[in-house]
Simulated assay, not measured.
Amino acid sequence: MSPKNSLKRANFPSAREEALQHDQDMPAAYKLAYTDQDFLLREELRGLRFHLELQKPEMTLQEHNVESTVVIFGSARFPSPDMADQMLAEAERSGDPAEIRRAKRDKRNSHHYEEARKLARLITEHSEQCPPDEQLYVVTGGGPGIMEAANRGAHEAGGKSIGLNIVLPHEQRPNGYITPEFCFRFHYFGIRKMHFMLRAKALIVCPGGFGTFDELFEALTLIQTGKSQRVPVILIGHEFWGKAINLEFLRDEGVISPEDVNMVTTVDTAEQAWQVIAEFYDLEGKPCRSC
């Protein structure tokens, strides 16, 4: 039977087929609506663009059976230990005291990069023993620093990881360790943050700046208000977080409930963070089906 007479042949041409046949030299008014970029980018269609940014990653992750994730947040500015060593050596050669101070600070903070890398490796090594529907996939914001470290750790463990990049005025390029089919790009911060939370079974928060705090407190608000299920929220670095936030003060001032203080757990190492996740889900007591 020839393809044109196949019982599976559709009665109507698909939108894709008609788009491929479309003459791009036609006037704008004549273009198919979904091939007319100027039309799709109109202010009035912002809601449609919200929907497209929600659906594109969602459909892709569903097709790959990605159901559970561990999200790792943290500063884009922390270098790897090797890079920090190079930066310090260059600063010392320059003789500039301010540059040397900055390089020593970055060298001190580079251990956060290494902890994020180790944690992602631990998560991925566990998941690589499990069938796809029981795996935990590492998710980051897709950029440099802590994000690169986490995607790198998953890559080095032989697994896949996800990057949710954002368009910024100072162009943020995706790091090279994200699994290519899971490397997404967003215009809208709100939709990106929704994707962080949709499949999150744990949130790991390394030291960071405004963006990290925004992501942390949005997650805490969703959990506190019951919009999201309770999941482990793990801060890495007692020294940093002890100075950066004071939940006990908020409790004592009556602006949060006493039990809200227990919404976060603070640890210092990747191994401790993984132990919190493993105990919360009893991963050691209940190995995956393939184990």
Rank of each mutant, 00 (worst) to 15 (best):
H238W: 03
M263V: 00
I234H: 08
L250D: 04
M263G: 07
F240I: 03
E248N: 14
D252R: 09
L247V: 09
G237V: 02
I236R: 05
S257K: 14
W241T: 13
G254I: 00
W241I: 01
L247P: 12
D252T: 06
D252G: 01
N262V: 01
N246M: 10
L235E: 04
F240G: 12
E239N: 12
F240Q: 03
I256G: 09
I245P: 10
I245Q: 15
E239Q: 15
I236P: 12
I234D: 03
I236C: 08
E253Q: 07
G242C: 00
N262P: 00
H238I: 00
E253W: 11
L235K: 10
W241K: 02
D252K: 13
D252W: 03
I234G: 11
M263T: 01
G254D: 03
E259F: 06
L235F: 07
F249R: 05
I234S: 09
W241S: 11
I256T: 11
D252M: 07
G242K: 08
E253S: 06
I245Y: 08
V261M: 02
L250K: 04
I234R: 08
N262I: 00
E259Q: 12
I236K: 12
G237K: 02
H238F: 08
H238D: 09
D260P: 00
H238N: 15
E248A: 10
V261I: 14
L235R: 04
F240H: 11
W241G: 12
D252Y: 03
V233T: 12
I236D: 10
E239K: 12
L235D: 12
E248M: 06
V233W: 09
D260T: 05
L250Y: 10
I245K: 02
S257M: 12
V255R: 05
R251M: 09
E248F: 02
L235I: 01
L247T: 14
I236Y: 05
N246E: 09
R251D: 04
I245T: 13
E239P: 01
K243A: 13
W241L: 13
A244S: 09
E259P: 04
I236W: 04
F240T: 11
F249P: 00
G242T: 03
E253P: 04
F249W: 13
S257H: 14
K243H: 15
